[in-house]
Amino acid sequence: MEQKILIVDDEPHIRMLIEQTLEELEDEGVEFLTAENGEIAFDIIQQESPQLVFLDVMMPKMNGMEVCRKVKKELMLDDVFIVLLTAKGQELDRQKGHEVGADIYMTKPFDPEAILSKAREVLGLQ
């Protein structure tokens, strides 16, 4: 099965940065999908079933929390691994993130190495 990573952030440069961070995975055959808001992200998750989603919390049109809740609690898609991206200083969101079923949380500014190794781990690529 083809492996897919969905990158969701309303800021284009963050999307590009994450894509760039994960570039070597693309060469290994992983397909990258991107979305600029929660609604689009939710549609893509339903259609494409990515294995891994990097999901920004603060977004227009359905925020990351809501997307996560719908995916995990309504669609019950347990095999979609969701990484919530919260801004530094908003760590309080973590409790809420846990409630909506997020798998892990990372803070922005993110550590590129951590993002890459997490992606490898989730996709089972060494």
Binding site: M16, L17, E19, Q20, E23, F110, D111, P112
Partner: peptide
């Protein structure tokens, strides 16, 4: 990609 990797380097530094 070139631009992306340059930005990434800067981003890493900022980080």
């Amino acid at each position: 990609k070139n631009l992306g990797s340059e930005v990434l380097v800067l981003y890493q530094e900022v980080n």
